[in-house]
Design a protein around this nucleic acid. Structure first.
Lengths: 223, 223
DNA sequence: CGGTAATGGATATAAATATATCCATTACTC
DNA sequence: GAGTAATGGATATATTTATATCCATTACCG
């Protein structure tokens, strides 16, 4: 019943990035092979991923770059805007507010909320930081459906419950904790530690495959 | 030849988080079922994931929480420290420098680098921000093997090359761009837009499964 | 205009990953 | 102490995802 290949979905922004590079350099069309090489991917994977977006190429030529970019953006939903509230205007929250990459994706952080009086009233890149008290009523009034959670771990569940009260349907959680939410809420956990651990483990594997003569680590871990 | 199940690896921090919760509440042991429920996972997945870490449980009882936490940490390499340099002490970079969650993972950001004179000389949470010029020699001298890249998109490749010069082996890239690097460098791309897109697409699927009568979105995207 | 090389698209295969089933062992209840 | 319910661990199956192969079509070159 799952419709998408989410591994593929996570690769699309990568292709998008490569395509933008080529577009800037004035290129009109691109082959799967070129795209795969730049993205460090196998050709068949790239083909399948592109097929998923509905884009079609021209045999013997490749894909129209602008067209493919468009197809990817449409597929990812980047061309319909999404209003979002952000809760927790600390360092990470402020960084997300200021992050320029989101403009491409249709994400529009319309307001931020905090309980810290020293933050309330200030703004980051035109986004006002408001008292958390105002969040629920404002979300309901504006029909905001997306919430970004960048509060400390020990407050995350409490604030998440508040977001549910505010009738928010999608929660993007940056706190390293596990939230308990009603089943109709879509939760995306963004775990920085997971990415870091993956890097370290992949590096370990890679070092084993291309072992350096000096400094080699004995590894008895074989199946 | 791949040794790890990286989908599973990305789930381990989730379990770790649940386990810490239970540990704080004074619980000594936990069953797969409880863990799976809290983590919103299927029981067999949790079992397999735990098996991967080498932890063993007690039939009829479950796993020793402290022991399981330890096994996960060992497996993920959280118990051997990793010195890292961070380049790009902007908002995102500063947020990472201040991020407390990394302390668990063994990541130790020993210094940050930037070219902006207004940032150089200041510090974030005991981490000094130094001029980028000093990076290469310092990295070589200190044998730092991990680099965190939080510079603007248009400078990312250039700085990445610098990190390679500095004999750094692992690069954690937060810029939404595609880096070209030698094959012996392990690159981890942390793409915030990918996570966001996944959230939006999953939400779409979920809404289709539990459709709300009012406000339904017509979607002609069928296989 | 003919031949050659490259491409997208379809199809087939392999591998990885998720899910289900079973069973001996253990704790718990009465 | 016997019976029952629950657990981890092993095994088997299904599904998803990745990889390889093939072929008709197109551009390019002479």
């Amino acid at each position: 019943m799952r419709v998408f290949n989410f591994s593929a979905v996570r690769r699309l922004p990568l292709y998008h990035s490569v395509l933008r590079d080529y577009q800037r350099s004035g290129l009109q069309q691109i082959s799967t092979q070129m795209l795969a090489k730049k993205a460090n991917m196998a050709t068949p994977v790239v083909k399948k991923d592109i097929e998923m977006t509905g884009a079609t190429g021209k045999t013997g030529v490749g894909y129209d770059i602008v067209g493919l970019i468009g197809k990817i953006e449409t597929f990812l939903g980047w061309d319909n805007p999404n209003d979002a509230f952000l809760v927790g205007a600390g360092r990470l929250g402020s960084a997300l507010m200021a992050y320029e990459g989101f403009s491409r994706t249709g994400l529009n952080i319309v307001a931020a909320f905090d309980i810290d009086p020293s933050r309330i009233g200030s703004k980051v890149r035109d986004i006002n930081i408001l008292p958390l008290d105002k969040m629920v009523s404002l979300a309901k009034r504006m029909h905001v459906a997306t919430g970004i959670l960048t509060v400390p771990e020990n407050q995350a569940q409490q604030v998440a419950d508040l977001l549910v009260t505010a009738e928010i349907k999608r929660i993007w959680n940056f706190s390293p904790c596990v939230l308990q939410l009603p089943p109709d809420i879509t939760l995306q956990r963004e775990d920085l530690c997971a990415g870091l651990s993956e890097l370290m483990l992949r590096a370990g594997v890679q070092e084993k495959q291309n072992p350096k003569p000096l400094f080699s680590v004995e590894s008895p871990v074989v199946s």
